[in-house]
Amino acid sequence: MHIAEGFLPAPHALGWTLAAAPFVAHGARAVVKEVRENPESTLLLGAAGAFTFVLSAIKLPSITGSSSHPTGTGPGAILFRPPVMALLGTVVLLFQALLLAHGGLTTLGANAFAFAVVGPWTGYLVYRLTRATGVGLLPAVFAGVALADLATYVTTSLQLALAFPDASTGFAGALVKFLGVFALTQVPLAVGEGLLGVLLFRVLTVNARPELERLGILRPAPLAPTGGAA
C-alpha cells in the first residue's frame, strides 16, 4: 500500500495530495471536536489509533508467498466515523515515511487517500449497510474491518495503474497487473484483520458499554443492566 517515495509522477503526487488534504483537515477538526465535546472518548480514540499503529507496523506472510501490511483502520472508522481515521491514518503514514523510508512525502497524499480515506470510508459503509440489513454487530465489524483493508490495496492498485498504464494494454492491463501483486496477497490479511477487529469489539462490548451506547454502536439496554438494585 505504500507507494515508494518519488515514484508517482509529480502531477499525480500533487493531485492525490490535493485530493487527500481536505479529508485530513476535516479529520483533524473531527478529532478535536470529539475530544472537546466528549472527553470520555479519549480512551477509545487512543485505542483506535493504537490499533492501526500496531497493525500497520506488522508485515504478515500470505498464501501467495509474499508478505504485506494489514491496515487497522476499520475499528476506528466504525467507532468514530471515517473522518477521525483520515487524521490518525495520516499520522501513521507520516511516521513511516519519515522514520522508516516506507512510503514518502511526495506519495503521502496518494497513500493517505488509499489508507486513511478510502479504507475507512469503505469499512464504515460496509459496516452500516450490513447492520442496516439486520446483521449482528460482530459479523458487521468483521466485514467492515476486512473490507477497509482490502479497499486500501485496491485503491493503491488503481492509483498505480492511473500513473503507469501498460504500454500495450493501457490502464486496464496495468490495473490487472497491480491487483495481481496486491489483491490476492491481501485477502488472508484482510480476513485476519477482520477477526482481530471482532476480538477487539468483543472486549469493548463488555468493558466499554457506555461509550459504545453513546456512539450508537450498541443500543442502550432497557433500564440499568447491572447493579440496578440501588
Partner: peptide, 14 residues
C-alpha cells in the same frame, strides 16, 4: 518462498 513485501515488489517492477 522469500515472502518479499508487495510494496517492494511493485517498486522493483516500476
Amino acid at each position: 518462498s522469500e515472502y518479499g513485501g508487495t510494496d517492494a515488489a511493485v517498486t522493483e517492477e516500476l
